[in-house]
Nucleic acid binder design. Structure first.
Lengths: 211, 211
DNA sequence: TCTGGACAGGACGGTCCCGTCCCGTTTATT
DNA sequence: AATAAACGGGACGGGACCGTCCTGTCCAGA
C-alpha cells in the first residue's frame, strides 16, 4: 500500500506527505496556541495532538518560538488572501469600498483565532511579539490608505492626514469589539449585533470624517 | 537603635513597618511584573529585589497569583484616586469636563505601567485576567456616562446610546495609542505628539457625535 | 525580663518543560 | 537490492520555578 495518505507508523514519506504533515502540525499548533497561549502550550502537547514524534516537529522548526512564528505567518497569509478575495468582488466608489473594507475588518477582528493571536501578541510582546506586531509591509493598510485617498479626491472625506483617518477608522470600527471579545465579552457574537454595531460606528466615523 | 525604618537583618518589626514592607513588596512586584510579565517573573526575583525572605512574601500572599492580584488591586486603587483628584478640580459645562476626562484617559492609557498591566491582562486573561478585566463597578465609566448624559441634555451631543458613545470615545481617543505603545510603538511618547493627537481625535469624535 | 512572632537566608522536593538523542521501522530513491 | 531518509515513541539531561520547611536572629508586647 504505497499510497498511504493516512498516518502510518513510520517509514520515509512521499514529498507531498511531508508538506501535508507540516500543514497538519501548523494547524494543530495554531489551535493549541490559540486556546492556551504560548507559554501554556507545551511542545509535547502539540506533538501528542498531532500523533507525531518530537523530532518531526523539531526537524521543521528549530525551536518552539520558530514553530509559533510559523503559525503566525501561516495565519497572516491566510488572512491576507481572504482580504484580497473579499475586496476583489467589490465595486462602487471609493467610499463604498472603504465601507466594505471596514465591515470586513470588523468581522475579521471578531474571529476567535485572530483574537487569540492578538492576545498572544500583546501578552508576549516582550518575547514573541515581533512575530506578529509591526509588519511594515501591510497590504491591508495600503489598501485603506489608497481608498481614503480616492475618497478625499472625490470630495467624500475631509483632507486630513490619511494615515490618521485609517487609524481612527480601525479604532472606531474594529478595535473596541475586538478588545471586548478578547476580555471575554460576548456582546458582538451574533451577526445581528455585529451589523447593528457596525452601522452605528460607521455613521459616527463618517460624520466626523466627512468633508 | 529601636527606630530602624531601614531593612534590618531580622527581628520582630513594628506594625507600621509590617505595612510598609507590604507596600514595598507590592511596588517591587509591580515593577517586575510590568517589566517582564507574569509568567516571566519569578517569586525569587521579587524576593531578591526586595531584600526579603520568601516567607515574608508568602505570609502575605498565599500564592504568586495572589501576589499579582494584590499588585493589580493596588494599581487600580491608585489610578482611581488619580482620576478623582484630576476631575475634582474641573469646572465648566459637561462637554468641557468630558473633554478633560478624555484627555486624562489618553494620558493614563499611555502610562507604561498601566500598559504593562493591560498587556498582562490580555495575555493571561485565561489565567489571571479576572483580576484585571471586567470590573463592573467602574467609577470612571460611570462618570463618563454621567457627563455624556448631561451633554446630551444640554444639546451638545446627539441623543444616541450613551454607553455606545462612551465606548467610542474611549476607542477613538485612548485605545489606539495604547495598543500602539503596547506593541512597541513610540509614536505618542512626547507630550507634543500626545497633544496633537488628542486634538485631532477629539475633533473627529465630536464632529461625529455632535447633536 | 521573658516569650512568641516575624524576619532573612537558604536548602529542598516536586513538577514541568525544552531540546537532544537513540532505536526500530518503513519506504522513496538509486 | 542496497541505501539513506524520515518517522513514532520514548528516555534523558539540564534547568527553571513554586511553595514548604528549617535555622538562627532579633525585637515588640506582656
Amino acid at each position: 500500500m504505497p499510497t498511504s495518505t493516512t498516518t502510518s507508523k513510520g517509514g520515509r514519506p512521499r514529498k507531498s506527505d511531508v508538506e501535508a504533515k507540516s500543514l497538519h502540525i501548523l494547524e494543530t499548533a495554531s489551535r493549541l496556541f490559540a486556546q492556551q497561549g504560548f507559554a501554556a502550550t507545551s511542545v509535547e502537547q502539540v506533538v501528542a495532538a498531532c500523533g507525531v514524534g518530537k523530532d518531526t516537529v523539531y526537524r521543521r522548526f528549530p525551536s518552539k518560538l520558530a514553530l509559533f512564528e510559523g503559525v503566525v505567518e501561516h495565519a497572516r497569509v491566510q488572512t491576507l488572501a481572504h482580504f484580497q478575495t473579499a475586496m476583489a468582488t467589490q465595486t462602487g466608489d471609493a467610499l463604498t469600498q472603504l465601507r466594505a473594507a471596514a465591515r470586513w475588518l470588523l468581522a475579521v477582528n471578531l474571529d476567535p483565532t485572530l483574537i487569540a493571536f492578538k492576545r498572544i501578541a500583546f501578552s508576549e510582546a516582550l518575547v514573541v511579539g515581533q512575530a506578529v506586531a509591526n509588519r511594515t509591509d501591510d497590504p491591508i493598510m495600503d489598501r485603506l490608505l489608497s481608498l481614503i485617498g480616492d475618497a478625499q479626491k472625490a470630495g467624500a472625506l475631509a483632507r486630513s492626514d490619511a494615515r490618521f483617518l485609517a487609524a481612527q477608522l480601525i479604532n472606531c470600527i474594529a478595535v473596541g469589539p475586538m478588545l471586548d471579545a478578547m476580555l471575554g465579552g460576548t456582546t458582538y457574537a451574533s451577526s445581528r449585533a455585529q451589523n447593528a454595531y457596525f452601522d452605528k460606528a460607521w455613521t459616527l466615523f463618517l460624520d466626523g470624517a466627512r468633508a
